[in-house]
Design a protein around this nucleic acid. Sequence first.
DNA 1: TGAATAGTGTCTTTCAGACACTATCGG
DNA 2: CCGATAGTGTCTGAAAGACACTATTCA
Lengths: 249, 249
Amino acid sequence: MVGSVQFGNVAERREQPPALAVSTVIFALRDDDRTGRKGLWLPLVRRTREPFLGQWALPGGPLGARDSLVDAAAANLRDTTGLIPRYLEQLYAFGDPARSPTRRVVSIVYWALVRENDAQHTESAATSVLLDDPNVAWFRADDVEVMEHLAFDHSRIIDYALWRLRNKVEYGSIAHRLLGERFTLAQVRGVYEAVLNKSLDPANFRRQLRAAADIEETDEFLSGGKHRPPRLYRYSGSTSHPLESETIS
Amino acid sequence: MVGSVQFGNVAERREQPPALAVSTVIFALRDDDRTGRKGLWLPLVRRTREPFLGQWALPGGPLGARDSLVDAAAANLRDTTGLIPRYLEQLYAFGDPARSPTRRVVSIVYWALVRENDAQHTESAATSVLLDDPNVAWFRADDVEVMEHLAFDHSRIIDYALWRLRNKVEYGSIAHRLLGERFTLAQVRGVYEAVLNKSLDPANFRRQLRAAADIEETDEFLSGGKHRPPRLYRYSGSTSHPLESETIS
DNA sequence: TGAATAGTGTCTTTCAGACACTATCGG
DNA sequence: CCGATAGTGTCTGAAAGACACTATTCA
C-alpha cells in the first residue's frame, strides 16, 4: 500500500514541497456596547477561493520572494485590509500536515496592533480603497473565540494570539500602540481592562503604571469631558523583544 | 535593470520558492569547572556541505513531507545528535532573505531541553552510534555567544534562545526537564543558578519554589553526601503553553 | 452647585530578601 | 566530635490592593 498511486493526493504531496504563507492576527480597540468598556476587535477577510470559499479567514498570502517575513506580513496587511499596523510581532509557525485540505501549507503568523483611528479608516475614510468592502469585517475577539466557521485552523490561531496578548500586556509597552501618540492614563487603563477583561482600580493602576512603564508626562491636558481634564502622557520606551523591530511610524 | 538576466542569482531566486528547514537549539546542564556551579551547554554539528562547510552549526535539516514541525525537529535531532529531548518548543521562524548565501531558506527553529544523563550518552554510551563522532561537540552556552564562526545566522539564533530560556525559567516547569524524574530542591536551585548565572539564597529559594511551582515531595531521600540527606521531589504540573505538547517520555 | 472623573494619602496584606538558627547525615 | 548541607523561623522593606479623601472641570 505504501507508495500506491491510488491516493493521488498523497502521492502528489510527497513530490511538492510545503508552501509557505504569512498571515496576521490584527487587534484594535473599540467601544463595546455590551460591557460599556472598550473591547478588543479584529478584522477578518472573506475567502474568494477554494478551499473554504466564502468563509472568514485571517488576512494573509504567500511569502513574497524578496521580502523578509515581517515585510511580507506588513505588505499583505496593507493590500488586503488597508491597515498599517503600529506593531507587528511574530506569533508562531503553524505547520500541521493536515491543516489545509489541499496542498500542505506552513503558515508563519504575525500579530499586529492598530490604533482605533487607523482601524476606522477601513470603514469610513473616503480615501480608503476598501470603503464598503464586503469582504472585510470586524468582529469582537470574544465572539471569534466562539465562531466555528473560520477557514483552516484560524480559530485556534486566534485563540493563541489572544493568549499571547494577555500574557504580554503585563510587560507594558503594548497599550500605547493601540492608542495614539498622546494618551491619558485612563485610556491606558481602558486597554488593560479590555485585554484582561476586568475592571482595575484607577488609583492603584496609576501608581503602578507610573512606576513601571516608560511613560512620561506632557504639558498638555485633554479637555472636553464634563470633569477635570486629565493630563496627557507619551510613551518613551522601546520593545523588550530582541528580534522584533520598533514601532512602525 | 529590473528583470535583467545579468544577475543570474537574483533571477533564479525569484523563480524557486523559499526552502523550508527545521533546526533546534539544545540545552543541557553540565558541571562547569570555571564557576564551580552547573552551567548550560549545547551541542553543535559540523557542516559537511557548502555553504559554511566545516563550520559549526545548529542541528537541523529539511522539513519531512509528512511530519509536523515538531516531529521533524525531534526526528532530525535523533538522527544528527542521537539525543531525545525531554522538552521541545518552537522558538522562532527566521526568514531573512539574506541569511543563506545560496538559495533562500526559511528556518523554523525549536529549542530543546535534555537531561544531563541523556546528554552524556552521546559521548560515552557504547550503544550510541555517535560515539566519538568528531562532527558533534558540546560548547558552553556563554562561549557560543562569543564565538563568531558559526554558520548562517546561528549565533544570533542561539542568543535569542538563551534570552527566551532566561525569561521562561521563572515560569517554573523548566527545571525538571533538565533533571531526572526525581530531584532535590538543591538540584533545582542549581538549574536556576546555571540559567540565571547567579547564586540564590537556599532558604528563600526553597520557600518560593514550594509555594509556586507544581512540585510535590516523595518519601525518598538522597543519601551518599557527607551531610543530611535531602528529600527527593517530583514534578506534577504541565506546560502552561497552549500550543506545545507535554514532556516527551 | 452637583455630577463626574482626575489625582493623592494611607492602611493592610503579601511577598521577596537577609540571615540566624536548628536538624541530621558521613567521617 | 566536626564539617557540611538540609531545612525552619523571623525580621525588614517594597510593592499590591482596598478605599477614603481632595481637586478641578462642565453643565
